[in-house]
Design a binder for these strands. Sequence first.
DNA 1: CTGGATCCGGGAAGATACTG
DNA 2: CAGTATCTTCCCGGATCCAG
Lengths: 222, 222
Amino acid sequence: MRTYGQYCALARGLDLVGDRWTLLVVRELLSLGPSRYADLQRGLPGIATNLLANRLREMEAAGLVSRTELPRPVNATVFALTERGAALEGVVREFVKWGAPLMSPPGPEEAFRAHWLLIPLRALCRDNTPNAPAQVVRVGSADDGCDIAVGTGVVEVTASSPSTMVDATVDGDPGALVALFTGQIPVSAADAAGMIAGDIDAVRRVIGGMPAQMPPPAGATS
Amino acid sequence: MRTYGQYCALARGLDLVGDRWTLLVVRELLSLGPSRYADLQRGLPGIATNLLANRLREMEAAGLVSRTELPRPVNATVFALTERGAALEGVVREFVKWGAPLMSPPGPEEAFRAHWLLIPLRALCRDNTPNAPAQVVRVGSADDGCDIAVGTGVVEVTASSPSTMVDATVDGDPGALVALFTGQIPVSAADAAGMIAGDIDAVRRVIGGMPAQMPPPAGATS
DNA sequence: CTGGATCCGGGAAGATACTG
DNA sequence: CAGTATCTTCCCGGATCCAG
């Protein structure tokens, strides 16, 4: 293993998770929960298959990931974060917060998965009408997305599950999706763009009126 | 610049600061404040000189670092974090928290600089006797270390400055220093080991009785 | 002396093909 | 499905050299 050789908590931490792709694997496992190899590959477009296998081995050796072989007839391998690996959530959350101002509209070559929004949505969503009955808003699709469950003021965001009944679904191009949840475009505009299906009030209910995190375009008057 | 090509705040953040050494450069600039090239080199043992120059250029291009050429007769270059670069403090803090359990005693090959303790000390130190007059405890030396200033319950940790008058100085081998401030060894033991010069009560004053963060050795009874 | 640039070897990362 | 094998590319690490 490559090490910085420094007796410093940051350096020792980076010795374990500073390699390329490692924190993105953590993101996947934090978002999706225990996952199979092929699911991780789908959530990590651009990673070489041998590299994913290497990372999973290294992370297992470092005690961050556990590997479970399911017996017949399932015959699958499931990767999950250990407690120590899940403890990286704080690091990832701070990173996402720091990266938020970088979320200008995506380039044409850039990949997108709706479940990547899970960690940001946990920080962004609110229950604006806590006295209303519980509702679920889906972002993305049943195959790849997040389910935002609200009720009694509590918000829970999970990876979307096909078996969950939802009150509304929000989908569309990635840049618009991010702009909607960061409050840069109003719900009405998203609806006019055909991004919303189902109960539009459920969507209004969960969107926190967060002040714009993105820097204004150069030359804009503040 | 190499990129993950993912429209995700974490991936875009890692595109900027995920390269090797980058976050350690941030650590140095957060701890020392504006610094010269040679100072950064001293705080980053193991880095190749060309690599440091490359990183500083890339970080400048990314808007994380500013470069100021001081005019004659000083004729030096000073590197400092921009506001955006300084905003990485949250990421670094979470990383240090996560890395704390990794701080088992250092190996013989491992480098150490006392100013690396600055960020951890900010989380660790308290003012246990807020009504006493203000005091300063130095960790390490005037050349490389931290000054912990306490008074009226407020703790401020800065890089050590030769012009600061201190009430006590703590120094010694790196593992013992970490053990002392994480509460794994008592002040009395550190004193018996000759680690403390000056007012030992000033040292007691700043050490927070933090519960042990390190995992107990295997087989230990909890 | 400070703040680098240049050159080179080794190894990590990336792309693709293939397999139990 | 969950990888391995192989090849290429290029980043990193170490040493040396250099301009102001």
